[in-house]
Every structure is written in C-alpha cells, then in structure tokens.
Amino acid sequence: MGRIVLRGVQKDFGADTVIPPLDLEIDEGEFVVFVGPSGCGKSTLLRLIAGLEDVTAGAIDIDGVDATDAAPGKRGLAMVFQSYALYPHLTVAQNIAFPMRMAKLSTAEQTRRIDDAARVLNLTDYLDRRPGQLSGGQRQRVAIGRAIVREPTAFLFDEPLSNLDAALRVGMRLEISELHKRLKTTMVYVTHDQVEAMTMADKIVVLNAGVIEQVGSPLELYNAPRNLFVARFIGSPMMNILEGRAASEHGAAAIGVRPEHLSLSTASGAWAGRVGLSEHLGSDTFVRVTLDDVDEPLTVRAAGERHFNVGDTVHVSPDADKLHRFDESGLRVV
C-alpha cells in the first residue's frame, strides 16, 4: 500500500512546460522529499499526484491502479497545505472529522479517531476551538490530524513548516518524522529547505526547472552528488566549487570541496589565501578565505573556536578523499 509511480508525466500551463516528461517511483512506506529552489515545480508535481491538477501527458499509478483521471478524493491520499487550509467556520473536531463525514463513517468511529488523533497531536484541549483561535503550530497539528484520520495510502505535504518560526519548525520536523515511523505510511513531502530534506527523507528527489536532477538517500546525495546543481544545493554551508588551475590539477573542469573537508593551517597547505570574515557558531567556526587567484571566497569549517585576523595569510588543504570532480557539462566524474 502506498506505492506511487509516475510514468512520463508532463505538465504545461498554457504554452509553458513547467514539468517536462518525468518518471519517478515512490515506494511503499517511503518518506520522499521533493526539494529544489522556489518555482522549480515541486508543488505542481505534488498537486499532479494529488489530482488537483490534470496531467498534460503521462500516467500516475497508485498501488498499481491507474489513477491519472481519478478525482482527488478517490485517490486515497491526504494532503497538508502550506496554508493549512483549515475550514475557518468549523471547530477543530469538526475540521478533523470532515473527511470522515464525507466518507460517511459512523459517528462512533469518527469520535474514536478524533480522540486518537487529538491525543497524539496534543490537541485534546482545543477540540472545541475554531482555527482562528489557535497558534500556528496548533493549526499545523490540526491539519495533520485531519490527514491522519483518513488513514490514507499516502500523505502529501506541501511546505508544511514554512509558516512556522525556527524553533517550532525543528519540533514539528521531529513530530512528522516520528509520525512516519509510527504509521509507516508513504509520505511525499515538498520543501525548498535542504536541511528539512536531509533530516527527514528516506529518499530525496532534487528538482530543478521541473527536471529531476538526482534521486537518492540523503547520504548518497551528500557523498556523491550527480552534478554541480545537486552539489551546490545539498549541504550547508554550500560546497566550495573551484574551477581553473585548482581544478585542472585534479584533472577536472571543476572540483568541489565541502567546508568540513578543508583544513586550515598558518604554516603550509595546498592553496594560499587571505582570511576574510569569520562566523562563530560556538561549536564551529566558518572562516572565509579568499585564494590568490580565485574570485569566490572559500568557506572553511574549523572545529571549535578559532580566531583569525582579517587579512592574515593562511593555507587551505582539501581532504583528497572527499574531493568531488565535475566535467565540463557539470556531471560528476568518477
């Protein structure tokens, strides 16, 4: 249950092709995250799966059945919107009950599921309130509650956390992950935040302009980005990319080194440069180093508190094992 297969799915809005034909398999019980910059078509892809948009071409199978033309309500999916999309005139309990009412479940069953969901989501005290009387985090929980009670074959989330403040976001991230562990239901989750993707996903789908750049587990993407786009997009701070002499020394058009795979020395190293601004996070220090013949400064991660003066000369050396090499077209060279 919960296996979704997209075959040659394409979406045009008028003359614009937002999603060129695309194939994707989402396995049963998987937590799949669509990640990519804003406007790349993540929501559109999710909405195609939900049935809120019609495909221009291609087919969508859900659990082996062709659902391409099925109405949204008939796909057995639940969706959590960025805006939460709670019904403002209904109480929390009524909001959660809504899909069950539409499915004509018995009142007893409805009550049972509402109580269960409310307990899990800490909403028991708020069941009689209207959405307008809840905080952002509580609304998010109600939206999730409304999704859970349907017992769907898969959950669809469209940037569910982007309206929450940073602290809440981390908490909700955990809650959703725990929910997934407990329910073991397929979840498809859209975000533009690669941290969310890395921390939550079983499988990440990196999208760029409607095209899938890479599909893989978070560590696969981290360790072996298939191209420069993925290399830049996954990981924080961003991977350093060097072209020119430094790259040709390694026999590539471009090389990439993550900040955590660079070491810093005042005495000697592969590349010499000058210290720029530093960011002190306590546990780590991110030091910017401008190399003599490279425009873009490198970001170097140094463990603990390290102090440099702006303008000091330093030497930077990459961890040779962790170096990523890319050819002219930006593809990874193995």
């Binding site: 309500g73 999916l77 969706m79 999309a85 019904y87 899909p99 539409m102």
Partner: peptide, 17 residues
C-alpha cells in the same frame, strides 16, 4: 482561499458538498 476547496476535494467532498 482556493486551498479550502482543494482541501475539501482531497477530503473526498464532491463539488456540491
């Protein structure tokens, strides 16, 4: 918000409902 109609559609409501 148009989201509400979409949410209802996913929740299994027909257009009339």
């Amino acid at each position: 918000s148009p989201d509400l109609e979409e949410a209802a559609a996913i929740d299994g409501a027909t257009r009339v409902r």
